[in-house]
Write a protein that binds this DNA or RNA. Structure first.
Lengths: 341, 341
DNA sequence: ACGCTTTCAGTTATCGGTAACATAAAAATA
DNA sequence: TATTTTTATGTTACCGATAACTGAAAGCGT
């Protein structure tokens, strides 16, 4: 492995001079600089960042802790974050928690041992505050993405779950639906709570019923074929007058699971049941826009959170924490249908 | 930042003793070990990997250079790789090249400066051999994923493009298609060449025509709305007897672009044109299996390539390079239709 | 009880950089 | 020309961990 000492010897200068050339610091005579640059090129020298970070106390590496990059929403987030990282000279360490609190814990430790400069995290649940605090103890600032956590004080980039939820339910009501069920994510996740709030308030505002069993919690983690089956079965076996004509699935994965279950019960979408959800179901939307969704600007989520993180790192004047709430776009498509009175 | 020296002071031992406790090396009295462990817990100490890597000469970090994690195929690859990395105690540095050779170059340098122990890479084209060699010069072994490159000697994990291609075309022929076009990826990518080879051979074997314009190159990079438009337009404006009744799109992204163009021309799939392609178009397949595809085991691609890489790192006895070719699964679905003679 | 081996813990030097200080050479000033 | 200032480069020490060596204490056999 070629080091700064090899360059120094070859160029007949001290290692420090080489360091100065590399970092463009201090004063260097043109002739010296050229000698050194020649040696660097000839030996194909690339600085050892591990050694650098030992003195500089920064690694130029950021942690990206997502729940599952297989979800197109998070894939786009990662893409946005990575692009911005490249632009600002940072590297990205990737981690998938699978909504598992324990995995999140070990990845948190991994990020600490890797001495990342900062972390972007989609917390698995409200308990995740522990992990954020652990990172803070080690002077690693954290930006929360998509979900926030009770008691969290730092920067976060969120979607407007409440508003999107209201608009989706509003749309269903406009289409004449009265029995609307919510298949929600776990309630210990902020987005689930916000979406439920929007759902409940909009129904109440329109004097519509929220029968028991209308709201159910679906575990994001179970991506098994029939995850939503028991939930959907229960909904669809309600008495005729209570049986939902529309289902609000809290996110894209849940929507897919719900539609699978409906298929299995020989129920058609939208003829028998209308469906809405948060987040696009890509790449279908490109060629066969089907789902009525509250689309969130996923790439922006990634870019902005990385931007915030970098600004906090390079700008210690930043005291105030910042919170952005990005509004979703409602796309009305074929998964929802008007029903007659 | 709490270091090994802080622990040493607190436990009233030397730093070396602390190091021994952490690494479980050498002989330590039980009482001493407990003292040290207590101090570690109390101060929440986590070793600085940057410092470690300086002596050990390994970072326990691997580079994953993909073209675009937004493609579900690569998202799954990343997932598989990451899972295996976690299992074997490695971290993953993520990079997206966007099929851009220059980006690949800078990411290669990034990986070298980060002193990753190894790299998994989907090369952008045949020139990428340069980058692999550059990595090799710095003693960083590389596993190629999905695509190989002329002159490459190391490990690689590929799909069976040739066989999959033959089976897809075979299927179209079985369904009565005689005019079959190929919208291929760039020919400086191994998978494109292999798929074209399978396509051409199968047509020839069945005495079917390959008219001019039947084979076109589509640039993966242009994910713009109408990327395939001119290609599809040209195909569809051929004389009646030459106009293709089926299109073989080289991969999922191309298929989406093609189907978009067809839509725009008011042509239906599969009624007017049948379509087949490589790789699933997830997550649609879960709830509305539409595309007839050669599905590749993406997660396995990731897992196996990481496995290979780690084995090479930890097992310097490995001289021979290894090459796996994973066969695709053909799923016949609704994007293809029988046509009468 | 004496010498010899084994166990346990500490010292020193090093990995590859850079900050901080030191010094030599060149330029500016008196 | 002598003196000060500026510019260019070198030296030393240190970041946090560990390998290699050294030394002290404990175990062990006769």
């Amino acid at each position: 492995m070629v080091t700064i000492y090899d360059i120094a010897k070859k160029a007949k200068v001290s290692p420090m001079t080489v360091s100065r050339v590399i970092n463009n610091s201090g004063n260097i005579r043109v002739a010296t600089r050229e000698k050194v640059e020649k040696a660097i090129k000839e030996l194909g020298y690339i600085p050892n960042e591990a050694a650098r970070s030992l003195t500089s106390n920064q690694t130029k590496t950021l942690g990206l802790i997502l729940t599952d990059i297989t979800n197109p929403f998070f894939a786009k987030v990662a893409r946005g974050a990575e692009a911005k990282a490249m632009e600002t000279g940072y590297r990205i360490l990737l981690a998938n928690t699978d909504e598992d609190f324990e995995k999140e814990k070990s990845y948190t430790d991994m990020m600490i041992s890797a001495r990342v400069d900062g972390v972007i995290m989609t917390p698995t649940n409200d308990e995740s505050l522990k992990h954020v605090e652990r990172l803070n103890q080690h002077n690693i600032p954290t930006v929360l993405l998509d979900r926030t956590v009770e008691g969290f004080e730092g920067d976060c980039v969120l979607g407007d779950s409440y508003k999107g939820s209201r608009e989706l339910v509003r749309h269903l009501i406009d289409y004449g639906h009265k029995n609307i069920a919510l298949v929600n994510g776990p309630r210990n996740i902020s987005t689930s709570r916000e979406r439920e709030r929007g759902y409940v308030e909009t129904l109440k505002l329109n004097d519509l019923p929220i029968h028991e069993n209308y709201i159910s919690e679906f575990d994001f983690r179970s991506m098994e074929p029939h995850a939503a089956h028991s939930i959907v079965e229960k909904l669809m076996s309600l008495d005729e007058d209570k049986r939902p004509t529309a289902i609000f699935a809290s996110n894209n994965f849940i929507a897919i699971s719900v539609i699978q279950s409906l298929r299995q019960m020989n129920l058609r979408v939208p003829e028998d049941v209308s469906i809405v959800c948060f987040d696009e179901i890509e790449p279908v939307e490109y060629f066969d826009p089907f789902f009525t969704v509250a689309a969130q600007p996923a790439t922006e989520f990634g870019k902005i959170s990385l931007q915030y993180l970098v600004e906090r790192l390079e700008n210690d004047g930043l005291e105030q924490s910042r919170k952005v709430i990005l509004p979703p776009d409602i796309h009305i498509r074929k998964s929802t249908q008007r029903i007659e009175e």
